[in-house]
Amino acid sequence: MSWDLRFLGTGAAHAVALGSSAVVLERDGRPLLLVDCGPDTLDRFTDTYGAPPSALYITHTHMDHVAGMERLFFRLWFDDALRGRTKVFLHAGLLPWLQGRVADYPGALAEGGVNYWEAFRLVPCTRGFWHEDLWFDVFPTRHHVQGTSYGLALRGSFVFTGDTRPVPEALALHAVNGEQIAHDCGLVGNPSHTGVDDLEREYPAGLRERMTLYHYGSAEDGEALVARGYRIARPGDRVALPEPQPPRPTAG
């Protein structure tokens, strides 16, 4: 069995040519879980896999990570075979924010009679969630206001930070079994995002060697990160992952 993390887009919010940052966990080439759904993510997903996602995890509710959910709603609602089947996993604390961003506009359809979430299968969580017989850990990250962004980890396989400042306390818990790490990183950091100098200050070399960097500001910035010895993700890239390990005994 093969496991991969495919990067549909890798850019910061303003780096539209690189696509909105989003990844797909693949098992034997089949999409298992989409992480985030920005303005162009649905097109990139369907171009790659031929159908909309069956499961989606949301890290946080900035529009470059959730704006595609309106189009996904229409795609699902008007297909009887898909309506109500796509799971949407997110930390329970994000639900009010996501509701306000994508679901609160008066009338999901002009004709009325439709509640936005009826098109989906909403699954709020706190510590994590089960999907396809796998336990995914959810952990808080450092992006804008505390409690508004959460990363994702599959024990023994990968950690996806989402948008964040460095989170050594999270990686000390979730990246101790050889996981591949997809980490937010631009050439220069700011109060809400990691810069390359932050990586070098906060993480040991052994951890940085397992990182693939994304959410950078331009193709040129990406190549500058490569020149500094880092591996970056480019749109469409796949990173081979280790086989997931059983969840910790406390999970579930």
Rank of each mutant, 00 (worst) to 15 (best):
M1L: 12
W3R: 14
L5D: 02
F7E: 00
G9V: 02
T10Q: 12
T10P: 05
G11I: 07
A15I: 01
A15C: 09
A17V: 05
S21Y: 02
V23H: 04
R30D: 15
P31E: 10
L32G: 01
L33R: 07
L34I: 09
C37I: 10
C37H: 12
G38P: 04
P39L: 10
P39Q: 14
D40G: 04
T46G: 01
T46P: 00
T46S: 11
D47W: 10
S54M: 03
A55W: 08
L56Q: 11
I58H: 14
M63F: 10
V66M: 04
G68R: 08
M69K: 05
E70Q: 13
L72D: 07
F73V: 11
F74T: 05
L76P: 04
W77R: 06
L82R: 15
L82P: 05
R85H: 01
F89R: 05
L90Q: 03
A92P: 06
G93P: 11
L94P: 00
L95D: 01
P96A: 09
Q99E: 15
R101V: 08
V102C: 09
A103F: 09
D104I: 06
G107A: 11
A108Q: 08
G112F: 13
G113C: 06
V114P: 05
N115K: 15
F120G: 11
F120L: 07
R121K: 06
R121M: 10
T126G: 07
T126R: 14
G128D: 00
F129M: 06
H131A: 03
D133S: 08
D133R: 12
L134F: 02
L134D: 08
L134R: 08
F136T: 00
R142G: 02
R142D: 13
Q146S: 14
G147P: 12
S149T: 11
Y150S: 01
L152R: 08
A153M: 07
F158A: 10
P166M: 09
V167I: 15
L171V: 06
L173M: 12
H174I: 10
V176R: 14
V176Y: 01
N177E: 15
I181H: 13
A182E: 01
C185W: 03
V188Q: 08
G189C: 02
G189R: 10
N190G: 05
N190E: 03
P191H: 07
S192R: 11
S192Q: 13
T194Y: 03
D198W: 14
L199T: 00
E202A: 15
E202Y: 15
M211I: 03
T212F: 14
Y214R: 02
Y216P: 02
Y216A: 03
G217K: 01
E220K: 11
E220Y: 04
D221K: 07
D221T: 02
G222C: 06
G222K: 05
G222Y: 09
E223R: 15
Y230D: 01
Y230V: 07
R234A: 13
P235F: 12
D237T: 00
R238C: 13
L241D: 04
P244F: 09
Q245P: 04
P246Q: 08
P249V: 11
T250H: 08
